[in-house]
Amino acid sequence: MRLSDRITGGFLVVLGSVTAYAGSLLPPVPGQQVGPNVFPLVCGSLIAICGLLIALGIGRTFEDEAEADFSAHVGVIESDLPQTRLYKLRVLIPPALLLFYVLAVDGLGFVPTAAVIAFVIAVTLGANLKLAIPVALLSPVGVHLIFYKLLRVPLPDGLLPMPW
């Protein structure tokens, strides 16, 4: 997800301007000139300025130096896997699974939902079934035992209540 500085800078300009404007519309504390409006106004304007500078490429030299310095010290592991656009979408799997957790946990219950998540992550990271299935079966139960039993977090039982 490497975007050009023009895109990220432009995004910050828009974000900053919108929040500064929206902030300035908020009412001040009654009887005072200032209130909840000031801080978003200041932050938003400064973000917009930073965005403009980034889009113009100012400060870029520092970044190149830091990168060169870092890769000189630490051997960067080059991936030999195909780095196509589709392949890179894999990074969205963890947040997607968290979204799945939010949607499914109340209906399915913690242990089945967690088992699905653990299984998918293990398989995407290249585990074979001999490893992925035990991970999917054991890790939800372990996490449930620690958080539900010891730390008393009210995890939903759903379809599969645990004996403790």
Binding site: Y101, V105, A114, A122, A132, V143, F147
Partner: peptide
Amino acid sequence: PRSAILPVIVLCCAVGSFATGNSL
């Protein structure tokens, strides 16, 4: 292997953050 550790990390992320306010 990473494929055994990271699933647990993701589960801890979900449960741990849920525990901060018992809200999804």
